[in-house]
Simulated assay, not measured.
Amino acid sequence: MSYHIDKDGYYGIFGGAYIPEMLYPNVEELKQNYFQIMEDPSFQEEFHQLLRDYVGRPSPLYFAKRLSEHYGTKIYLKREDLNHTGAHKINNTIGQILVAKRLGKKRIIAETGAGQHGVATATVCALMGIECVVYMGEIDIARQAPNVARMKMLGATVIPATSGSKTLKDATNEAIRDWINNPVDTHYIIGSVVGPHPYPDMVARFQSIISEETKKQLLEKEGRENPNYVMACVGGGSNAAGAYYHYLEDVDVKLIAVEAAGHGIDSGESAATSVLGHEGIIHGSKTLLMQTPDGQITEPYSISAGLDYPGVGPLHAHLHQSGRAEFISITDEEAMKAGMELCQLEGIIPAIESAHALAALNKKTFKPNDIVVLCLSGRGDKDLETYINYFNL
């Protein structure tokens, strides 16, 4: 079985491009050109130069000694939190802005939940001198105020999404509407491995730098490229896709995807798509989706603004259905405790998204010599207010 995309844009039965006719030219233009552009040596040179000199890659693979002792195994943290802008999102926005430039686009739009993708998009637009519009749910604007300020400082226009749950799904809807109205000069930088083909594949390829580096770094530190486990949080799933990418076909490497259970899987306030989801279509692709029996999207919930998405990317839907990845659901409470544990054991304040992945360490039994690579997808600066309120700091 293959875990990579097929020629029609599917992972197994998931993926595709389910789009309004108005968007067909945009998506088709991208589909016809993205791979050729990405394979061009001059593109690769510019992309890797910016990753090195601007983003600060390679990000360290850090042996977390005290965390490892606590869990009785060897835990390495892939430090995406140390990237410029504080998360893995910049890997993809650098790649997509270079693609957009080669396609002659003059305006960029994006959606954001936690604000990290919005900040990363605003950052690369400032870098390249291109107009930037970011759609963000009204609720997320309130709970991620520092990131909203950053986007504005970087010259972006932030437009609130005021419909539905006023979070990530609604911001995505607004961005797609904008794209339909501005098809010729605008490129939509989607922030995760979601959306119509070719986005899930394109974003995964840009994020695959994570596992590419991990293999080299692990070889250096442990004398082997492959860990026993790779763990990452999954909302749409771009950091997980990047952390898994070069291990997808190595079935000896166990993949663990960690979702947000919110107040509990059966609480009605959750974002555990792998448990609660059914096949459906959202934002242009067929995937697993939380929905009512008549197909209305169920409002997701998580304390983490980056994980409250009602679906997962089609790659992750395929990894779940095929059994290639194990999905674990983590509650708000478990994630917050795990975030605090990392602070006090390793002196690293993680994003609450990443804290969900850390909490899954409690759900598995590891052997002392197992090597566990956990993608620390972002840093916790943006979540300080949530930490403060939760723990009454």
Results as ranks from 00 to 15, higher is better:
residue 295 G to D: 09
residue 319 L to C: 09
residue 324 R to C: 05
residue 302 S to Q: 06
residue 281 I to W: 09
residue 307 L to P: 04
residue 277 G to Q: 03
residue 321 Q to F: 01
residue 279 E to P: 10
residue 325 A to W: 01
residue 292 T to W: 09
residue 326 E to W: 03
residue 286 K to C: 02
residue 319 L to E: 06
residue 281 I to L: 04
residue 283 H to S: 03
residue 319 L to F: 10
residue 296 Q to A: 15
residue 283 H to R: 02
residue 294 D to T: 15
residue 312 V to S: 06
residue 289 L to V: 12
residue 324 R to P: 02
residue 304 S to N: 05
residue 283 H to E: 07
residue 295 G to V: 01
residue 306 G to F: 01
residue 297 I to G: 09
residue 275 V to N: 07
residue 312 V to R: 07
residue 297 I to T: 12
residue 305 A to R: 01
residue 320 H to F: 14
residue 302 S to I: 08
residue 285 S to T: 12
residue 276 L to Q: 10
residue 317 A to G: 09
residue 284 G to W: 02
residue 299 E to H: 15
residue 273 T to M: 05
residue 321 Q to K: 15
residue 281 I to F: 11
residue 275 V to Y: 14
residue 274 S to F: 13
residue 274 S to W: 06
residue 281 I to R: 08
residue 293 P to W: 10
residue 280 G to V: 05
residue 287 T to W: 04
residue 295 G to T: 08
residue 308 D to Q: 12
residue 296 Q to L: 14
residue 295 G to L: 02
residue 289 L to M: 13
residue 324 R to T: 10
residue 290 M to F: 09
residue 305 A to K: 00
residue 323 G to N: 13
residue 291 Q to V: 06
residue 314 P to Q: 02
residue 312 V to I: 15
residue 287 T to M: 05
residue 280 G to K: 07
residue 322 S to R: 10
residue 298 T to A: 12
residue 296 Q to I: 13
residue 318 H to V: 08
residue 300 P to I: 01
residue 318 H to G: 05
residue 292 T to I: 08
residue 308 D to M: 00
residue 309 Y to V: 04
residue 275 V to W: 04
residue 277 G to K: 04
residue 309 Y to C: 06
residue 286 K to Y: 02
residue 305 A to M: 05
residue 310 P to F: 03
residue 287 T to S: 12
residue 313 G to N: 00
residue 278 H to G: 14
residue 314 P to N: 07
residue 307 L to W: 11
residue 301 Y to H: 13
residue 278 H to T: 15
residue 310 P to W: 07
residue 277 G to F: 07
residue 317 A to D: 11
residue 281 I to G: 08
residue 273 T to F: 03
residue 325 A to G: 11
residue 292 T to Q: 10
residue 325 A to N: 04
residue 312 V to E: 01
residue 294 D to Y: 14
residue 291 Q to Y: 06
residue 323 G to Y: 12
residue 289 L to Q: 03
residue 307 L to I: 14
residue 292 T to R: 09
residue 314 P to S: 12
residue 283 H to M: 04
residue 315 L to C: 09
residue 308 D to V: 11
residue 295 G to Q: 04
residue 290 M to T: 04
residue 289 L to W: 03
residue 317 A to Y: 00
residue 275 V to K: 14
residue 285 S to M: 08
residue 323 G to R: 13
residue 304 S to A: 15
residue 275 V to I: 15
residue 279 E to H: 09
residue 274 S to E: 05
residue 326 E to A: 10
residue 273 T to E: 00
residue 315 L to R: 09
residue 305 A to L: 02
residue 309 Y to M: 00
residue 315 L to G: 06
residue 321 Q to R: 14
residue 297 I to D: 04
residue 325 A to I: 05
residue 300 P to T: 02
residue 322 S to L: 14
residue 276 L to H: 05
residue 313 G to L: 04
residue 280 G to L: 12
residue 304 S to C: 09
residue 283 H to C: 03
residue 315 L to H: 11
residue 273 T to K: 06
residue 286 K to R: 14
residue 294 D to A: 03
residue 295 G to S: 09
residue 278 H to L: 10
residue 299 E to M: 13
residue 309 Y to G: 00
residue 301 Y to F: 15
residue 326 E to M: 11
residue 300 P to W: 01
residue 287 T to C: 06
residue 326 E to D: 15
residue 306 G to R: 00
residue 276 L to E: 01
residue 276 L to D: 08
residue 309 Y to R: 05
residue 275 V to L: 11
residue 273 T to Y: 03
residue 311 G to D: 06
residue 277 G to E: 03
residue 287 T to Y: 05
residue 296 Q to G: 12
residue 324 R to G: 12
residue 283 H to V: 03
residue 312 V to D: 06
residue 315 L to Y: 07
residue 303 I to W: 02
